[in-house]
Write a protein that binds this DNA or RNA. Structure first.
Lengths: 170, 170
DNA sequence: TATTGTTATACTCTATAACTATA
DNA sequence: TATAGTTATAGAGTATAACAATA
């Protein structure tokens, strides 16, 4: 057993650690702002924002929302339940698939996002963007975007989703 | 009340979202590997790794460890307790300050880090580094490093630490 | 038979506030 | 009086597995 050769050089290590730390601190600060101003967790904000900002209809299917926001199905159900209880979304049958559930932002949901967004943006500017030049911001995006694509292509959650289904040893 | 003008353009938004998503997915995968192979949470791994890899003595002061790893004091005490119970670290008096507590990695702790590290590195390579050129990795580091410095300069946790102490209205 | 979503449950982590001891 | 660390406690979030209903 020779000792581990496949380590990382200092730049790779630095990029990795910086990524984790920066994202962690940023998320922590953002979470605090969201909670203070709107009583929202980050996941809840993401769900609401997706519906209110990304979807033209203000609606979305559970399964689609799960991807990229939440790691387990039950987790999404839990969060959707909280949002529904708070009257920020409604739950309804999906149009085409009778098993499906569709989440829709309410007016209150949109209002809350609008209320929370300015401070949210402020935190991002102050913490993440402020020390960077325009070029650096562009560079950050240019580098992270392919990584995101790559991660989505080999989906971590989807793998979990179907994990050990067709178990032949039954 | 005119509606929110101080929003972000698409590059800024893209950089922010990509950062959060990439770091989140990466951390999730890494966490799974650490847990599967070594029964460690990410925070526990970070603490152990700091002691085993960064410190020449294998020791560290609680307060110093808290910075950048854990968000609250009690959180660190909790994690230190777990690590101690698992015989991965020992707790002792700090040399100079009688209030201080020093954490020291044990042999078992070092062994566990060594056991876990190759797979850890593998995940980082596969998920984060693989789709990037060397230049991009360097660029990622070059951009994130000043952000990290900036975030540390306006410390979120330290602010919490001394929050409303010297209250003049006493 | 596979997929969508829910439920029950257990567990991990985090934060707050009160407290002790040392500087 | 301020700081280092611990404790008790409460709460939020997540994952697992079993389940019902539809494709």
């Amino acid at each position: 057993m020779t000792d581990a050769p496949p380590l990382l050089d200092s730049v790779e290590l630095g990029a990795y650690f910086a990524l984790i730390e920066v994202a962690g601190l940023l998320r922590h600060q953002v979470e605090q702002q969201l909670n203070d101003v709107g009583g929202l967790s980050y996941v809840q904000f993401q769900l609401l924002a997706r519906l209110a900002l990304d979807s033209p209809t203000g609606s979305g299917r559970m399964t689609d929302l799960a991807d990229g926001v939440v790691y387990s199905r039950s987790g999404l159900t839990y969060q959707a339940g909280l949002l529904e209880k708070a009257k920020l979304v409604t739950r309804g049958q999906a149009a085409d698939d009778d098993r499906g559930v569709t989440l829709t932002v309410t007016g209150a949901g949109r209002a809350l996002i609008a209320k929370v967004l300015p401070g949210h943006v402020e935190v991002i500017k102050d913490l993440l963007l402020q020390p960077l030049t325009r070029k650096q911001i562009e560079s950050l995006f240019a580098v992270l975007e392919p990584v995101r694509q790559h991660m989505r292509a080999a989906p971590p959650r989807s793998a979990e989703r179907r994990r050990r289904r067709s178990n032949s040893a039954t």
